[in-house]
Design a binder for these strands. Structure first.
Lengths: 117, 117
DNA sequence: TCCGCGTAATCGTTTAAGCGGTTGTTCGTT
DNA sequence: AACGAACAACCGCTTAAACGATTACGCGGA
């Protein structure tokens, strides 16, 4: 039961929910992606990603200097179900908005070749 | 998005999850039922039930002196989905244990005709 | 009607937890 | 060595939980 309480606590923060929504539409993202798309400070982005990692909801993988996070494919089936139920019932406007911000950022990133803007 | 964060926060407490599990197996329960089955103080039981009520997860109905709480049938379909996903993936031992405690309490309640034990 | 009783909600205080910002540290690349 | 990316530690602030005690509510009996 404690496991579920922890799981839901990880989902009880708006920033973390936005992170999850982004990772439902994009297979993997690094800290600086989250930072720029959601307009967060670096420490805030990193802290929330670590939180989701420690909760077992995300996995991380280092590629050179970047640490990429993705939804943990080995999450319990109930966990996956819950994340999908959440994602599917978000207002479409919100997901579109997030998707647009993500695409804009990806363009910028291609041009500057760094996260430091 | 804030709505979801609030919803998940309501589920991020072990006591509240136990309450929900009980209400998934029994259509309605009053404060003193929760109090006795889960061995909580009256104020703690009442407070958590109020919390779940204010989160829209439960409804309440007064019958004489008792206030009965039940799962809100008009909860979003995603909310219902999430509650079911949670309940179905709890360890069966836990649900059996809760069910047994509930039945024991119901026997006691019949005999004494009051909650004041 | 008034009072007592059982039930539930709330109040006030203390204690613990969470979040955010700043700053410093680690790691790896160049 | 210098730099960028990510993480960790500290601090202050806000929030929430626990707890006991008190208050409010309904009902029944004197």
């Amino acid at each position: 039961m404690k496991r579920f309480a922890q799981f839901f606590k990880a989902l009880s923060d708006e920033t973390r929910l936005q992170v999850i929504a982004l990772l439902m539409m994009e297979p993997e993202l690094c800290v600086c992606d989250i930072e720029n798309v959601l307009k967060l400070t670096q420490s805030k982005a990193s802290r929330h990603l670590r939180y989701l990692l420690n909760s077992g909801i995300l996995t991380d993988e280092r590629k050179n200097v970047w640490v990429y996070y993705r939804i943990n494919e080995e999450l319990d089936s109930s966990g996956i179900e819950i994340l999908k139920a959440f994602y599917n019932s978000i207002d479409k406007k919100l997901t579109e908005e997030l998707g647009q911000k993500l695409n804009e950022w990806k363009k910028v990133k291609e041009n500057i070749g760094t996260c430091d803007i």
